[in-house]
Simulated assay, not measured.
Amino acid sequence: MWTWIRNVTRLTVKEFRSLLGDVPLMALIVFAFTVAIYTTAKGVKAEVANASVGIIDSDRSALSYRLRDAIRAPYFKAPVDVTHEEAGPALDRGDLIFVIDIPANFEADVLAGRTPAIQVRVDATAMTQAGLGVLYLNEIFLKELLDFFHQRGLESMLPTQAVIHLLFNPNNQSHWFTSIMLIVTNVTVLSIILVGAAVIREREHGTIEHLLVMPVRPSEIAMGKILANGGVILLASLLALWLVIHQWLQVPLAGSIWLFAAGAALYLFAVTSLGILLATTAASMPQFGLLAAPVYVVLYLLSGAATPVESMPLAIQDIVQISPTTQFVKLTQAVLYRGAGLDIVWPQLLAVAAAGVLFLALALHRFRSMLAKQG
C-alpha cells in the first residue's frame, strides 16, 4: 500500500508539471473559469430584456399613446413605428420580436363599450423573449386600461390577496443561476478533455513506453492523472466560485463551500475516470474529440443545468438519475442555492461516488488492455 501511495504521488507530481508546462491548456482553464463565466452570465439572459417592438398605431389616440409609452426599458426597447407592409419582413429578418397592431377607432370603441382587439405578432424563434414578453405586454396593457378608466383590478375586490415571496432568487436574476451552472459545465468538459488529452499525449509522444519499463501499475498511472488534472480543475472551480461568481458577479452563496468542494472532488473523480475510459477507446486525439463531444453534450443537456429534469419525459427522468452530472447538478443547486446540508445531499454524494467507482473500474480494464498492446 505504501509503495502504491508513493508511486501515485510521484506520478501525480509528474502529471502536474506536465500540465503546468502546457501553456494552451492552462490558458484554456484560466479563460473558462474567469472570462467565459463572467461574459456568459452577463450576456445570456433567461428573462425578457431589450426586446425589439414595432407598433402599427392606426388610432393615434390618447389611449393608444398611453399603451405605447408604457412599453419601456429594461424589458423592451422603445417601440418604433412600422406600417403593415413593413411589419412582416421585419419579423422575417429578425429585426423585431413583437409587432403591436392597434386598430383605428380603438379608443372610441373602448369608450363605447365595444371590445376592439389589439393584435400582437410575435417572432417565437426567440422562445424565451416571446413567451415571457407576451405575458409582460398583456400585464402592461391591462394595467394601463384599468388606470385609463380609473378602475381597480380584480384582486382589489377579493376578500384576500395573494402575497408572493420568491425564495433563493427574489429578483429573478438569471445570472445567479447561469454563473453557478457554468461551473458545473466547465468542470465537466475540462475534466474529460484534460485527462483524456494526457493519456493520448503519452501514447502519441511515445512516453507510455517509459512508463511500461517502470515498476508501476496501471492503477497508479491512472490515479496520477486523475489526481493531477482533477486537482487543478477543483482549485480553479473553487477560486472561480468565490472570486468571479461571489465577489465579481455579486451572487450570494447560501450553503457551505466546503460541502460543495467535497461534492466537486467526487464528481471530478467520476468524470476524469470517464475521460480515461474514452481516451483508451480512441486511437488519436481527433477521434477522442469526436467521441467526447457527444458524450459531454448528452450529459449536459440531460443534467438539469440547461433545462429542468422535471420538464423531461418520465422515462428520461428515470434514466438520467444514473448520470453523475445530473446528481452533481442537484447537489450544487441544493447546497449553493438553498443552503442544504449533508443530511440532504448525501444521496447525491453516494450516487456520484458510485458512478466514479464504476467508471474507474472500466477505465482501468481498458487502460490495462491499452498498455498490454503498447508493450
Rank of each mutant, 00 (worst) to 15 (best):
S52T: 15
S52A: 15
V53W: 08
V53N: 12
G54Y: 05
I56M: 04
I56V: 12
D57K: 02
D57C: 02
S58A: 14
R60N: 14
S61Y: 01
S61I: 01
S61L: 02
A62Y: 00
L63R: 04
Y65Q: 14
Y65V: 07
L67D: 11
L67P: 11
L67T: 09
R72D: 06
P74F: 09
P74H: 10
K77E: 15
P79D: 09
P79E: 08
P79Y: 08
P79A: 06
D81A: 09
D81V: 02
V82E: 07
T83I: 05
T83E: 12
H84F: 04
H84D: 12
H84N: 10
E86Q: 14
A87H: 05
A87E: 09
G88A: 13
P89W: 14
A90P: 05
A90H: 13
A90Y: 10
L91Q: 05
L91R: 11
D92L: 14
D95Q: 00
D95Y: 02
D95P: 00
D95V: 01
L96W: 07
F98K: 02
V99W: 05
V99H: 07
V99Q: 08
I100W: 04
I100Q: 06
I100P: 03
D101F: 00
P103D: 07
P103H: 04
A104Q: 13
E107T: 04
E107N: 04
V110D: 03
A112F: 00
G113D: 08
G113L: 09
G113C: 12
R114H: 06
T115K: 12
P116E: 03
P116W: 00
A117T: 13
A117D: 12
I118S: 03
Q119D: 13
V120R: 02
R121V: 08
R121I: 06
R121L: 14
D123E: 11
T125Q: 06
T128W: 03
A130D: 06
G131R: 11
L132P: 00
L132E: 04
L132V: 07
G133M: 11
V134K: 03
L135Y: 04
Y136F: 15
Y136K: 09
Y136D: 06
L137H: 03
L137D: 01
N138Q: 15
N138D: 15
E139H: 12
I140N: 02
E144N: 07
L146C: 01
L146V: 01
D147Q: 11
F149L: 15
H150K: 15
H150I: 13
Q151A: 15
R152W: 09
G153A: 12
G153V: 09
G153F: 13
L154G: 10
E155Y: 08
S156A: 15
M157E: 13
P159E: 06
T160N: 07
T160E: 14
T160K: 10
T160A: 13
T160F: 14
Q161V: 08
A162Q: 12
A162K: 09
V163Y: 06
I164Y: 11
H165T: 13
L167H: 07
L167M: 08
P170I: 08
N172R: 11
Q173W: 01
Q173T: 06
S174N: 01
S174C: 00
W176T: 02
F177W: 08
F177Q: 04
T178N: 10
T178A: 01
S179T: 08
I180P: 00
I180N: 02
